[in-house]
Design a protein around this nucleic acid. Structure first.
Lengths: 198, 198
DNA sequence: TGCTATCCGGATCAGTGGTCCATATATTCG
DNA sequence: CGAATATATGGACCACTGATCCGGATAGCA
């Protein structure tokens, strides 16, 4: 890549970051281009879709969340690790207003630029969940996909101005449900058959 | 209102109904107008905004849900009434793909055409919740706003193609959390929690 | 029949994401 | 250093969106 191209790319990325922070992920691409003193075509060549732009912007944070999951796995109890990590995920996603919907769509669409990152994130969460289940502190009738959906759901809540004030409490409610289900049903020993059917 | 105007209005409304059923609430208004053999301006005169169109379309169903809450209050136990009604709300909202976001926005915006309907719905839910709390079968640390947010959250889940398969189970998880928090009484037989299924 | 208040919808506007291509420029070679 | 070439650029353009305007068609009535 030519030096000027790289410079332009980085500049656009930085501008896109602040624009999205201000107006959410649905901000007009033309606006971003304007603010970066760049043509729309240039922006679209570097980032062919909004997802691609968002992926380039969030890639570092995705990696950070994945790494954090690994750290928590060693430094915290299974229960704390799971709850802390999920809380961080929700809080982080909420910083990028509107990203939740794109991520929910991306995890099912292999062609999306965000797909790989979402899959990785889900895997990290699944590991923490599995560890908590092994330790008997998380209910056994949910899996990584459920956890991903729960995170998306809570993140979406924080995205809605009218509902956001309740997001904190409802996080606790949901977290309690994921953890208490284990205690009630008891340690995994007995059969692991789904405690409530699916 | 002139007779031809009324006829046009009703026709547009009917066409909008099927168009939304097929493509979700974000369907192009121009498409609806085309399918109704009507100019876009005509559609927009009868329904100045998308919310207004949706409100006219859902008004009857809103009323139905409100009425159903009243019926359940008399015909079912506080616990069943709450769970059944919330489940119906979620299922119903999911029929109109994308409506959840509009409703979440409308409940905070008094100028939205959907505002009144949403407020009424929230009040109906709050009554059922209060009744369940009085009966000691629902936790006391949530209120009508929380319930509305929970419904919206679960409805949104059903709207996302990638997450919808998990919506059913996660409904049970959330419902269980709302009910079990009430009184951690009784060792709740280990087999089938009567918690969230209805 | 004619008259008027009302309604209609094509034309138009500013906005969106996306594509094309003549132009400008960085890089490399003589 | 100058010329050739490969590459990046952004204005012009497209189809689409919701929204508005206004000349013309029409319903309802006398």
């Amino acid at each position: 890549m030519r030096a000027d191209a790289r410079k332009n790319r980085d500049h656009v990325l930085a501008v896109a970051g602040s624009a999205i922070a201000e107006q959410g992920v649905e901000v007009s691409l033309r606006d971003i281009a304007r603010r970066a003193d760049v043509g729309l075509a240039t922006l679209l060549r570097h980032f062919p879709t909004r997802e691609a732009l968002l992926d380039a912007l969030l890639r570092a944070e995705f990696d950070e969340m994945t790494a954090k999951a690994g750290e928590l796995e060693e430094s915290a109890s299974p229960e704390d690790a799971l709850v802390l990590w999920v809380r961080d995920c929700v809080a982080w996603t909420t910083e990028y207003r509107g990203a939740t919907v794109l991520m929910a769509a991306a995890i099912k669409d292999p062609d999306s630029a965000l797909h790989a990152s979402c899959v990785t994130l889900r895997a990290a969460g699944a590991r923490l969940l599995h560890r908590a289940q092994e330790a008997g502190v998380a209910r056994h009738d949910i899996d990584g996909d459920d956890l991903f959906a729960l995170i998306a759901m809570l993140a979406w809540l924080g995205d809605q101005p009218a509902l956001a004030p309740r997001a904190g409490r409802l996080f606790d409610v949901v977290a309690g449900a994921v953890l208490e289900g284990a205690a009630r049903v008891g340690p995994a020993a007995s059969g692991g058959s789904g405690a409530g059917r699916g």
